[in-house]
């Protein structure tokens, strides 16, 4: 699952069309969309709006496990030409001075750069900063929900000293975003495969359901069961995780004890190699 956070409807439209997303009903006060393994929210302008939208999207799309998060949108720069794409490797909040350092991805055909989140539109671009208004709010919030390797900001330069922001039109914005769908596809694919990897690592063992349907486990016991079944699967792959005599047990804690005893016995009896 990959979630997009964009500031403006005209930034969102090319993504909604490209990924064939459908509007989510009842997502007011935001406009939000979802599709196959993906969701998108239009935050509005500014870091507070971006933070709120990120949290809102997290809340309405489910809370389980790490998801990919991408903030995509337009930005200004002192020298980069319009249409130049940059993946953030550093995000600094201009008002607080705090910085974040998104992991650099080496699998993307684009440069990385330093993004400065400002509180109001900037015309006087300094140094090598990529100026925009959402990244710090987005990034700090998304990292509360997912591991930082899955959280990224991709900015397309729309204005510079030669092309002021006042000249931008909604259709011009859409065109700029459209031109970067290829890079965003690559970013989505890279992040999605990491999401998948983490999800498969955290998935319940296949036998879990059978246990849960037969005995009543407390929440703590469920954690214990999950761990024991994972250990069983790791130590004895291919052997059904259902020790002899289990059916006769009536209490969940006896089931756990039985499983643990069997794993301990196999471990110490030397039936379980560490290697291979």
């Amino acid at each position: 699952m990959v979630n997009f956070v964009v500031a403006l409807p005209c930034e969102a439209r090319p993504l909604v069309a490209h990924y064939r997303l459908q509007a989510i009903r009842g997502a007011e006060p935001f406009m939000a969309y979802e599709g196959e393994g993906m969701a998108l929210i239009v935050s509005g302008i500014g870091k507070v709006a971006a933070a709120a939208a990120t949290a809102f999207l997290h809340a309405i799309t489910g809370k389980g496990g790490d998801r990919g998060w991408i903030n995509a949108g337009l930005a200004g720069h002192a020298s980069h030409p319009a249409g130049y794409g940059v993946l953030a490797h550093k995000i600094t909040d201009h008002s607080t001075g705090e910085s974040w350092y998104p992991q650099r991805r080496l699998d993307l055909p684009c440069d990385t750069g330093e993004v400065l989140t400002v509180g109001r539109p900037e015309k006087d671009f300094q140094g090598s900063w990529v100026y925009e208004m959402e990244a710090s709010g987005f990034y700090a919030t998304a990292c509360r929900f997912s591991t930082s390797e899955l959280v990224h900001c991709y900015k397309v330069i729309s204005d510079n000293p030669d092309v002021p922001a006042a000249q931008l039109t909604p259709s011009g914005v859409e065109k700029l975003m459209q031109e970067h769908l290829g890079v965003l596809d690559a970013l989505v694919n890279g992040v999605a495969s990491q999401v998948q990897e983490l999800a498969s690592r955290e998935a319940d063992p296949p036998e879990m359901e059978r246990y849960l349907s037969r005995w009543r486990f407390t929440v703590t016991q469920c954690h214990q069961l999950r761990r024991l079944l994972r250990r069983w699967r790791t130590l004895s792959p291919g052997r059904p995780a259902w020790p002899d005599g289990l059916e006769k047990l009536t209490r969940a804690r006896d089931v756990l004890a039985c499983l643990k005893a069997r794993i301990d016995s196999d471990s110490s009896a030397g039936r379980v190699p560490t290697e291979g």
């Binding site: 690592r201 955290e202 994972r230 250990r231 699967r233 790791t234 130590l235 794993i263 301990d264 471990s267 110490s268 379980v272 190699p273 560490t274 290697e275």
Partner: peptide, 10 residues
């Protein structure tokens, strides 16, 4: 590494 044998044994 939940699937690592080193950590799964007792």
């Amino acid at each position: 590494y939940p699937d690592e044998k080193l950590f799964a044994i007792s």
